[in-house]
Write a protein that binds this DNA or RNA. Structure first.
Lengths: 201, 201, 201, 201
DNA sequence: CATGAATGAGAGTTCATTCAT
DNA sequence: GATGAATGAACTCTCATTCAT
């Protein structure tokens, strides 16, 4: 028993290693930089070995994608225990950007990179994205129930807020704010979030 | 003189031809579909010829990027003659998204794709982006001067609004709204823009 | 004794299992589809295990080849009890084609595929083929003894008849009669056999 | 003009070189031995270069296949001027086997190897095979018209004769007559042909 | 000015086989 | 006896780029 358990563990450790290596390559030079060969090289294995752990490249990308959503969800949950709806929604937005900027490679795969895996897979598992979307919707709803966002359409507000945080995250990750010094950028982001918060009422 | 002028013109016509062809390939099947060979094939020239007009692939991408900004700027100017600052700002936002969705390949290169050209070039020419940014800033400033966005920081609002429209555009272009039917998506976008407009005061 | 006997039996059962699995893969998707890995997968063993029972891939192919001849021989024997030599020879020909078309994978390995195993083995075991050849020769001889094929050389007739049925079988198996509808092909084959029978005298 | 002509010639010479090299590899170790890499290696070019002359591997195989039929047809025509129908048919059979044995690689691709190119192509061009088939049919018909093969069905005889010569050719090419000394084999073949000729009446 | 032949590197993937455990 | 991890070589094919002509 213990032997097979160890094997299992080793197997999943290897999968993890492949995954993390792919992620690292991704960070360095983006999507196109991730190749089976490079992953193999980076961990000193032969290309064929990768295929013992993943069916094909898509599967790696897809797992990365799922992993990202999973991490992301946990990250967002951490904020849900705040009582005041506005404070919670505000914290949610900050957490969103926080996650995106501390895990740019995940965020990129999840929300920016061109659909990596075959469509079918994407469709089947977009529920992962939905779960996240629902969280945001619930938070906005709580605000509306508490009297904020009066006269606004729920779906429209949710989409607007998502677009807003995604816009910030993706502009930064894809380096369109390069020329703005880091600290200024932080202030700018904080200011924008602050502004957004103020629009609740 | 006249001869060298003609030469110049021919040269720039050829550059243009290459550019438009690249764009067409881009639109048809996405970024990865653009290869020197395919461009050459499409215009019945040999691959080598491309290099007489462009130093390398990056340069083509970079010029496409500039061209995009140029078109974009013109597009945005069309809206600047609206008198009422709020109406103007609103129209500006709509125009932004309108441009992005009708020229997704330009928008992608400009604001989403990983920096195509070497950093140096980017630095030199990011003024193109600045010009656009200034336009938005002016419009927001007009609104503030007219008594809207009271108590808000100019830069923060500008960044927020930009992030907002960019968020919408990039979520759609990179197909993260795939599962939402087209007409519903249009309503959603309109609703979000409407909401954003309402936050001006 | 009994223990080693059991071991023997188990060993030969496993060899059998591997063989049948190879055959199945063969039938399903043709020659190129047979790989050690796929055989192993299909019977839930690891690739390494196969090598405990067969030295290499060639050996599997070679045994398949032998097995084919063995089956083939039995098949042909079934016809030998027909009294009339011409009727027997005719039935022999039909049986030949019948076997080939109902066991195309065997037939292919036996008579069409490029020598699978090292030549040495082939030499040693071509007696299997000889046994089959003798059967045919005996039948033709009986016909000659009975007054048919007058003035013909025995060996020449035997070779001609073999070539004839092999020609039919291999044209069909290797899909050179693809464009002929199945039922037409059957009539054609029957007609050709009929013609061949008529040449006995 | 002369320049472009020379280029043309060089291009077609290179195509020819690739083709002949493929053919050579084919002879040595059969179908599976033909790879783009090996062709390239053999003529001291890089693999990519092959693709300047042929779209893909299928195209090479397909051209080989066509070339074979073309040569084959010419070969068979050489025999058509014989007046006497029986003599002509007999010569036809000899020519068939002669071609097969002097061009085993062509014959293999044409009539033995598993369909190399995509089915569609095969279908479109099987007319090449038909042309050959018609030739044989005409010859048999002439014999029948001259009073031979009385009471026989034309199609059946044609198929039988084709199967017969193909059987001889393919047994030899795929080395099922290995153990028979060359000269004995030649006598055997001659004998079989002689027998076949004698069956015309 | 333009060609087009050629390359070398790299992509994803599959395979027969080995070997320490 | 069996495993399964790993390899190295092979596969087809595409690409940006160079350079003699």
């Amino acid at each position: 028993m213990s032997i097979s358990e160890r094997k299992e563990r080793e197997k999943s450790e290897m999968r993890e290693l492949v995954l993390q290596t792919a992620l690292k390559l991704f960070i360095d030079k983006g999507f196109e930089n991730v190749s089976i060969r490079k992953i193999a090289d980076a961990i000193d294995y032969s290309p064929g070995t990768i295929y013992l752990y993943y069916k094909d490249k898509d599967e790696i990308l897809f797992e990365l994608h799922n992993r990202g959503f999973s991490e992301f969800y946990k990250f967002q949950l951490a904020v849900q225990n705040i009582e005041d709806p506005i404070a919670r929604l505000d914290a949610h937005g900050r957490a969103y950007i926080d996650f995106a900027l501390s895990n740019p490679e995940y965020y990129d795969i999840m929300f920016i990179a061109r659909a990596p895996a075959k469509k079918i897979k994407l469709f089947n598992n977009w529920e992962l994205g939905d779960r996240t979307y629902s969280l945001l919707k619930d938070n906005v709803k709580s605000c509306i129930d508490a009297g904020y966002y009066q006269g606004q359409n729920l779906e429209a507000v949710v989409f607007a807020l998502w677009a807003f945080v995604h816009g910030i995250a993706s502009l930064i990750i894809r380096e369109r704010m390069q020329l703005v010094p880091k600290d200024v950028l932080q202030q700018l982001t904080a200011g924008a979030l602050q502004f957004m918060k103020s629009t609740a009422k």
